[in-house]
Design a protein around this nucleic acid. Structure first.
Lengths: 348, 348
DNA sequence: TTGAAAGCGCTAACAA
DNA sequence: TTGTTAGCGCTTTCAA
């Protein structure tokens, strides 16, 4: 025997219900899942008995039989959960919503350093039906890894790899391009950019967008004004302080996140500069819960795009794919940001 | 046939490895799991082949065979993830840590309203080996529900039910008692308490602790000074404003959370009151990431106890229980808080 | 030390 | 409309 406690020691299984009613397991199984071949009368009897006896299907056995678990996985660095200033919880919130709506479960797999092995294990063990990965690098090895296992997956963001894959992304090039052009329109030329680390594809795209805007106006790009940093308030303070102490400081700053912008506001206040008059600030806003560009004083001009909505789309696409509701071709969605003009920008 | 793509369409299974080596499935299975009956030589050969062929065990099948999944579940209201001011993420972080260390997976099941059915489904479907539940009510029906299914579970907090269960809790009675006594020691008698909703066991315990302290000093409890509220900064502002506009306002306020305290600080500032001189404030501090009682101005006197550590213990106890490392008797752990004196309290 | 075979609880093809 | 039967991929007993 494989197990000394049949049926996990508890359960009323299909067998018990079938015996009780003098039916076969398969009839009971079909009745419970509303198979058309089962007449209403039988279906009713079975439903009654199942309920009375407290029958609950065993997900492990069902998963093995149908080849699906009805769960999707999300692998992420433990750190991101700990971070206070992160959009991770908002993405997760969007994913959770859809997962609930569609009757799936969400398997969270945190990792400390070796993401690849966690991903591989999850994918090949068929513990989940599909996976979501986030924050891809410019050339992200995870995509090939997952494609090779054959498991359905969706990427939050894009990566420059030569295999097709599904993704949900925002137009990061456009985000920084528009923010830079806005500032150029207002007469600024010494425009600083606080960007994330360029190994991440989204940051690389933003850097390119910034450069494109500057190039199109024949403005030189001063490398001292382009900083790579984490997206937190503290880093915003530090970067701004550094920029403002330059011999020829910027008159405007583009921030990759709203947290960064908050830090810049603080640094400006300390330096006695008034935002919108002495220093212009713009940012990209993920529309996170609990912090709003409109509530900044003065209100912050920003591109905006809900990252929670992105979470929703990620889960929707993944589940559709798992259920075969999408063709075999990968789908990609790129949202373009709205630019909301508020009071943090002034003429130079 | 049950499935038109045997082995999920991909996988190198035990069978393939066995055939390759001219061994039986069972030998390969045992070799891979270091069964003592397998000689080192064979074990080695098998390990090589498995690696070379890219064998990965199918978790669904394994789970079915051994009756375990090596995953634990956490059911929580979708809302809590969305909340900015919540200790949920910190608890989750502690749980994640341990889950990773022990090689388990964490299944997050968000729900919108019908928690009971989500719990029951998770428990009876044997999708996970054990469950953690949080924020129990004074009489929490979930405990009986889970106990009836027979699944191992641990509660973050206690509940007054007459069945044994495992829990990790803090001494909430003691927390409010000590905070109140401290204020009484400083000569305060009009002491307000901002507590959570008393249907939650922890809030009920805190209310009792407050009352016990007052009673022991023969101080009457003014119902106007005891407020039930959510634990956010906004609510802190609102409650404090209300208390300060009383005909006979309190001279000291006990806050159930550090967020609440933050709001009280704000309201005091608006009212032109100086914390520590015109108004004394104390709080309980869950030691959340990103907000520290020591950083308040003036620094906040508080009881403290790491809620992340509680998360760790919850997972440790649950997994030990699943693996049979604990006896059959439930275990309960109650931590007592440290009281850290800072500058937010003054003599009346 | 190894293999054959049964079984975990469920689904589904096929036959009746 | 229902039952029989053969899996899903793995573990484990039992026998060799």
């Amino acid at each position: 025997m494989a197990n000394d406690r049949p049926n996990q020691g508890q359960g009323i299984g299909l067998k018990a219900v079938a015996d009780e009613l003098g039916l076969s397991q398969s009839t009971v199984s079909r009745a419970l899942r509303n198979h058309p071949s089962i007449p209403a009368a039988t279906r009713e009897r079975v439903a009654q008995a199942a309920k009375r006896m407290g029958y609950a299907p065993n997900a492990r056995a069902r998963g093995l039989a149908i080849g699906r678990t009805e769960a999707i996985g999300l692998v992420f660095p433990l750190e991101r959960l700990r971070l206070v200033q992160t959009n991770f919880v908002d993405v997760l919130s969007g994913i959770s919503d859809v997962v609930t709506e569609r009757g799936y479960n969400l398997l969270l797999s945190p990792f400390r350093d070796d993401e690849a092995s966690v991903l591989r294990r999850l994918a090949t063990s068929r513990m989940v039906d599909g996976l979501i990965i986030t924050r891809p690098l410019v050339h992200d090895p995870r995509i090939r890894l997952l494609a090779d296992t054959g498991i359905p997956f969706v990427v939050h963001g894009r990566s420059d790899v030569d295999i097709p894959y599904s993704y949900v992304d925002v137009d990061n090039f456009e985000i920084f391009r528009r923010l830079a052009e806005l500032l150029l329109d207002y007469g600024h030329t010494r425009i600083a950019a606080l960007n994330s680390y360029r190994r991440f594809r989204y940051a690389a795209a933003r850097a390119a967008g910034y450069r494109a805007a500057m190039d199109s106006r024949r403005q030189p790009v001063d490398p001292d004004l382009v900083l790579e940093t984490a997206m937190t308030e503290e880093d915003g303070v530090a970067c701004a302080a550094r920029l403002l102490s330059l011999p020829e400081p910027p008159t405007a700053i583009i921030c990759g996140s709203i947290f960064l912008a908050k830090g810049v506001y603080r640094a400006a206040a300390e330096a006695g500069l008034q935002i919108g008059r002495d220093l212009s600030v713009v940012a990209h806003d993920d529309q996170l819960r609990g912090i709003s560009a409109a509530d900044f004083v003065p209100a912050l001009t920003a591109t905006q795009l809900s990252v929670e909505m992105a979470g929703r789309r990620l889960a929707e696409i993944l589940i559709d794919r798992i259920e075969g509701k999408l063709g075999d071709d990968p789908v990609g969605e790129v949202s373009r940001p709205d630019l909301i003009l508020r009071e943090s920008v002034g003429r130079r």
